[in-house]
Structures are given as C-alpha cells and as structure tokens.
Design a protein around this nucleic acid. Structure first.
Lengths: 141, 141
DNA sequence: CCTTAGACGAGAATAGTTCTCATTTCCAAT
DNA sequence: ATTGGAAATGAGAACTATTCTCGTCTAAGG
C-alpha cells in the first residue's frame, strides 16, 4: 500500500484516539485498490473470513476519523470510499438499473461552476457539494 | 390543488394502469404544497389518520408512475418530492446535522456546466444529474 | 511476563421499508 | 339501483441493512 496514504491514515486515526489495526489497514487497502465506492458485501467478498459486524464497525470508525466517506443514493447498500482529500476530488455515476457506482473525474470548468453555485446559496453554511450522474451502465444496456 | 398538475397526475397514473384515488390525491397535494422533499413521517404528520403502510405503498405507486421522485442521501429516512417535470428542475441542500432538505433553484450557467459534464461521460447512457449541496442550516448553527 | 484497554466475532436487537391478508371501496355492466 | 369483480386500504407481520451487546482474545506498555 501507498506509504504516504498509510501514514496519513495512521495520523487521522491517532487524532481520533483509535488504533490502526490490521483489520483497519485491510479495509483501507481494499478501498484504495477498488477505485470506486464499495458496499459492505463487496468488501466482505474481497476479504473472506472477515466478519460482517467488524466490517461495519471499522468502516464506521474510519468514517468518524475522516478516512472514509459514505456515498449514498445507489440502491439498498451504502457505498464507501476513501475521503476526498486522500483519493482526490471526483464525482460518481450511478447505474439506475444495477446500482453500480463508478468514479468520474470532473473538469476544472465544471468545478468552477459548482463552487459558484455553492457560494450563491444563502441560509446554509455550505461545506461540501455532491454531483452525481445517473444512467445505465454498459452491462445493463 | 393546481388543475393542470391534477390532470397530469391523472394521466400518468392512467398510463401506469393505476387509479387516482383520494389518498393518492392527498399525497400529491401534500408534496406539492411542501416546496421541499418530505419524509414518510412528515407526510403522516400532515395527514393524521393516514396509515403508514398506505403512505409507503402509495408513494411507491406514484414513484413508479413518474409522478414522485425519491431523494436519497439525507439521513435515515427517504425523502419524496414531485417529479422534476411537474415541480420544475431544481437541486437540494442537505443539512448535515439534522438531515433537513431544502430546494435550491439553479442558475442557467450552472445548468450549462452540469449538462456539459453529463455529455462528456463515456460508458454510461446518462439520464439524469443530481447536484446537492451539503451544509449546516440556520437552526442547527 | 502481566495487565488491561481496546478490538474482535457471533448473534441479538433496531429501524426503515415492504409484504400479507382480511376487509372495504370503487367502477362497470346489467 | 344492484351486483360482481378488481383494486385499494389498514394493521401488523416480515424483511433487510445496519448497529449494538457481550464474552473472548489480542497486543502495547510497564
């Protein structure tokens, strides 16, 4: 696994008073290697023997430590990916048929427009934006 | 309730081989009057006596008939609103603290940028885009 | 080593949502 | 109007993703 990523994750867990255990390292590895948001069942498949309760518990710890982010809006299962400042800012495209989620790298022009929209909003203190495309993936088509 | 909306909903339900019952009319009224996506508990509050199972069932019927759309990514409950072509295209801002969702009307420039991004995506047949802001609402702040 | 706080796994518990089924309502044809 | 059948309704059971509980085990620091 990437050394710098490893060190940054260790730092964030330490900040949250959490240990960087083998299981948590494994979760970070799986998510870093996937290149797209994964569900808990998908994570369990890639690490046979890992118990479901531990997967949920530790993903939750990683979310609280700002290492992992939960992605919603794609079928029944939550999807998980590395935090944006670890994996790079990107958006998602969701298949409306099978729920699969793929990463999309945005253009600078798009980002400028999105930030502008965030600034124009009143009444809320905007902290984040989400831009997802919805469509049908090649397999489902 | 708006006559044109009423007729359009009747048409869509007929297309889906569904009746436009009093309960379904009530649901459309509540959603049209809210001006923001509502959860099932919120809908139940505004129509006392309405049973939970009927609310879920009929909202689902309305979703299948393309009258209502489910909004995800805001807390534990799903939120429901009128379909975009009935209520007008808009985006949402979600309070990360309490889960409340408000509507946001986008600028033409933003829409142009979003459409461009959709066109640039390959591998998927893009049918829709979602752009949500996340922040903290005035009450929670 | 030993101690002890925390992590682990298995399964129970929870909560949002969907399903079942007995009853009622609605519509159409007589 | 009346009746027959198809669909809607409501109460509660069932389902499923997720979280919690608790007894056991691991591992870091003294």
């Amino acid at each position: 696994m990437d050394r710098q990523l490893d060190a940054e994750v260790a730092l964030r867990l330490a900040r949250a008073d959490q240990r960087y255990t083998g299981l948590r390292r494994a979760l970070v590895e799986v998510l870093a290697g996937a290149g797209r948001p994964l569900t808990i069942p998908e994570i369990l498949q890639s690490r046979p023997g890992l118990s479901q309760s531990s997967a949920y518990r530790n993903v939750s710890v990683l979310v609280d430590a700002d290492v992992v982010r939960r992605v919603t809006g794609a079928g029944d299962h939550g999807h998980f990916e590395l935090a944006e400042d670890l994996a790079g800012h990107h958006h998602h495209i969701v298949c409306s048929s099978c729920g699969r989620v793929a990463d999309v790298v945005p253009s600078p022009g798009l980002e400028r427009a999105l930030d502008e929209a965030a600034r124009a909003t009143t009444g809320f203190e905007v902290t984040e934006h989400r831009f997802d495309l919805v469509g049908v993936c090649a397999e489902c088509r």
